[in-house]
Design a protein around this nucleic acid. Structure first.
Ligand code: FES
Ligand code: FES
Lengths: 141, 141
DNA sequence: ATAAACCTGACTAAAATAGTCAAGTATCTT
DNA sequence: AAGATACTTGACTATTTTAGTCAGGTTTAT
């Protein structure tokens, strides 16, 4: 089980953005330099974040991105969903009544993985971008 | 973030084994048939479980595997460690002081991922094989 | 005009996953 | 002693996923 770079970068970039997001948009170039993430890759990620209305873009010179909601209202789970970093623990299709082995009943461990998935998503539900920015400024002092 | 088949199969197979593990060893062939897991793949998995002393092998006809400890004492975390299904959320090396971007300081999100890793491992620490077997027999009634 | 910065889609190298395959060795049953 | 069953090991491979790169745009402030 591991977290992919896409998800990690998305959150990292948004924390960076949230810290500098006052009046002026923040350019991906700056984020790229500060966080050491490839600019081209960031563009892919922000395209998804924009489509899911987590950020807004400002085109042209001096452009960049700004948050589309208050940092408090952006939960980790929203970010992860936006970039398709979903938690997947079961093998089978959830809606289907069939098990992962093709049999008519769910497998011996299906419920366990389902619990696990909920357990992880709870974590993502609770954490907001604001929390992360705060944690970081505290650590700075 | 997703769970791999190796981890899922390891737990699935051990639950199966724990249910039938009275006096006689359980053959991988039976587990393979009951759970719909490739026999060759199961052999790889059980080889690791044996090395980590989670199961014992009995060779020869009527052979198979038996648990090496009480089901209560086998936690999910032990199983996952045995088959190298570890939870990995941070990008950097934990022992190193360097961040994932090569800089001298840990990145903005390092603490968050560390928290997440602990959160997930807590779940695996708590669940024992016995719990899983019980859950399943309850559901049967 | 021109440069900064967003925007899009296609492409690709590398890594990880999920197995398969082959050739054993040990032990029980008959 | 023979044969069958089942564990044991190591190497090999196809597929999928990840983590980007690359090329070519469009928009807008100055
Ligand atoms: S994971 Fe859902 S049936 Fe096995
Ligand atoms: S994940 Fe540890 S420094 Fe970024």
């Amino acid at each position: 089980m591991k977290l992919t770079s896409k998800g990690r970068y998305a959150v990292m970039a948004l924390v960076d953005l949230a810290r500098f997001d006052n009046i002026n948009p923040v350019s991906l170039r700056d984020i790229s330099l500060r966080q050491g993430i490839s600019l081209d890759y960031l563009e892919q990620i922000f395209s998804k974040l924009r489509k899911k209305e987590i950020v807004q873009s400002v085109r042209g010179t001096q452009g960049g991105y700004i948050l589309n909601k208050k940092a408090k209202e952006i939960k980790l789970i929203n970010i992860f969903e936006a970039v398709d970093e979903k938690v997947k623990t079961v093998q089978c299709k959830k809606e289907s009544k069939k098990g992962c082995n093709g049999k008519a009943v769910k497998c011996l461990t299906h419920n366990l993985w389902d619990e696990l998935e909920n357990h992880i998503n709870d974590f993502f539900d609770k954490k907001s971008l604001e929390d992360l920015v705060k944690d970081n400024s505290v650590r700075r002092v």
